[in-house]
Write a protein that binds this DNA or RNA. Structure first.
Lengths: 239, 239
DNA sequence: TTAGTCTTAATTGTCGACAATTTAGCATTG
DNA sequence: CAATGCTAAATTGTCGACAATTAAGACTAA
C-alpha cells in the first residue's frame, strides 16, 4: 500500500524503466501492488495465492488479477502449477547463489559498458552519491541504510549507465526484485559494509578512467565477494 | 503448425526446460503455437495482433488468447501498448547488438560453470557433436545447416551444462527465441562457418580441461566475433 | 486405528458479454 | 485545399458465470 523507500528514493531516476506515463490499466496497477506486497513480505513467502480472495481484496475482477499473476510468474516471483494455483516463490539458498552468478556476469558487463557510455555528468553524480554514502557511514555506522538502499542505488546507476536496455530490464525488473524477496525471506542484514564501500570507490574510479576492462573485473569481484559472504553466512546458519 | 526443425532436433534434450508433462492448459498451448508462428515468420514482424481474429483462428476464447499474449510480451516477442494492442516485436539492429552483449556475458559465465559442472559423459557427447559437425562441413560445405541448427545445439548444450537454471531459463527461453526472430527478420545467412567451428573446438577443449577461466574467455571471444561480424554485415547492408 | 474410497466443496481454467478507449472516416470551416 | 472537430465502428479492457479439475473430509472396511 505505502510506497517503499526504494521507490521513493529513486523517484527522479527510477530503476524501473517507465518510459511513458504511469500504469493505466487495472491489471498493471494490481501487478505493481502485488509485486510490492510480495517483496516486502506482506504476502508471506510460500503462501498460496487465493484468486477469489485477492480479487475481492483488491476490488478487481478475477480476470484482471489473473493477468497480474501471469506477469508475476514471468518475473519468477510466483510459481504456478496448472489447476492447482500460484504460490509465492520460496527461494532456496542454491537458487539465490544462482542469481549471484547471473548478476556477476550481467553487472560486470554493465560496468564495462558504463565506462564507455556514461556521460561525464553522470559520473560526477555517481561520485557525489558515493561521497554521500561515505558520510553516512562514518556518521552513524549506518550499516542498515547503506546496505539496503545505498548499495541498490549505486548498482542501479551503473546498470542504467550501460545504456543497454536488455541489461537494464533483466537486472532492474527481474533479478533485483527477486533479490529483495530473498533478502526479506532471510532477513539478510548487511555486514561487510566498509569493505563494500571501498570496492564501490574503486569501481567508480575505473569508470571515471574510462577503463571498461578494469571496471568489469572490479564489479565482478565485488559481486563475487558478496556471494562468498552469503555462502559463509549460510554455512554458519546451518550450525 | 508443423514442428520446427529446432524442436525436432532437440527432442530428447530439449532446450526448453519442461521438467514435467507437456503443456496442459489451453493458454499454454496457444502460447507455444504463437511463439513458433512468430519466430518462423508465419506472423510477420511488426504486424498487429488482432485478438478476435486470432482467437477465432486458433479456436479459443479471447481470454485464453490474452494470457498467451501476456506471456509473449514477457518474452519480448510482442510489444503491447495499453488500449491499442500488441504488435510483433520489430528488432532494430541496435537491439540485436544489445542482445549480443547480454549473450556474451551470460554464455561466458555458462561456459565457465560448464567446465566445472558438466559430467565426463556430457563432455564426450559434446565432442561427438562437434565431430559430427566437422563431417557435415567438409561433406557438403553445409554452411546453412551448421549455422542454423548445429550452432544452436552446441550453445544449448553448454548452457545446460552450466546447471544454472537461471542462466538456462534466460538464454534458452528468452534470448534465443528473440535471436531466431531477428534471424528470420533479416535472413542472416551464416558466413564465418569454418572459423566458428574452430572456435567451438577450442571451447570444448577448455571445458574438457576443466579450465573455466579459459572456457569463459573463449566463449566470450566467440560471441564477440559473431557480434562484430554482424556489425560488419549491417554496415555493408547500408551501402 | 488406519488405509482406502467416495462424496462434496472449493478453486482454477475457460468462455461470452458489456463498458471504455481508440481509430478511421466524414463533414465542416478557415 | 488543409486542418480541425465530430461521429461511428472496431478493438481492447474488464467483468461475472459456467465447466473441469483438484483438494478435503467423511465414511467404510480390514
Amino acid at each position: 500500500m505505502e510506497n517503499s523507500k526504494l521507490v521513493e528514493m529513486s523517484e527522479n531516476d527510477s530503476p524501473v524503466l517507465e518510459s511513458e506515463s504511469v500504469a493505466i490499466t487495472i491489471a498493471d496497477r494490481v501487478f505493481q501492488q502485488l509485486r510490492q506486497a510480495i517483496v516486502e513480505g506482506d504476502i508471506p513467502v510460500g503462501s498460496k495465492i487465493s484468486e477469489p480472495e485477492l480479487a475481492k481484496n483488491y476490488g478487481v475482477s478475477r480476470g484482471s488479477l489473473r493477468e497480474a499473476i501471469g506477469r508475476l510468474e514471468a518475473c519468477n516471483l510466483l510459481v504456478r502449477k496448472p489447476n492447482v494455483g500460484a504460490r509465492v516463490m520460496t527461494m532456496s539458498s542454491e537458487q539465490l547463489l544462482e542469481i549471484y552468478f547471473v548478476r556477476e556476469a550481467l553487472e560486470g558487463m554493465a560496468a564495462r559498458l558504463a565506462a564507455v557510455e556514461m556521460s561525464d555528468e553522470e559520473i560526477i553524480e555517481l561520485k557525489k552519491l558515493l561521497l554521500q554514502h561515505s558520510k553516512q557511514i562514518e556518521k552513524e555506522q549506518g550499516q542498515a541504510y547503506f546496505q539496503k538502499e545505498g548499495d541498490l542505488d549505486f548498482h542501479y546507476r551503473i546498470i542504467k549507465g550501460s545504456k543497454n536496455s536488455r541489461l537494464i530490464g533483466l537486472l532492474c525488473n527481474d533479478l533485483y526484485y527477486q533479490m529483495r524477496l530473498y533478502r526479506y525471506q532471510f532477513g539478510m542484514r548487511g555486514q561487510r559494509v566498509p569493505r563494500a564501500y571501498v570496492e564501490h570507490e574503486h569501481i567508480v574510479d575505473a569508470i571515471a578512467n574510462r577503463d571498461g576492462e578494469m571496471a568489469e573485473l572490479l564489479m565482478r569481484s565485488h559481486i563475487r565477494s558478496s556471494r562468498k559472504n552469503i555462502e559463509r553466512l549460510l554455512e554458519e546458519q546451518q550450525s
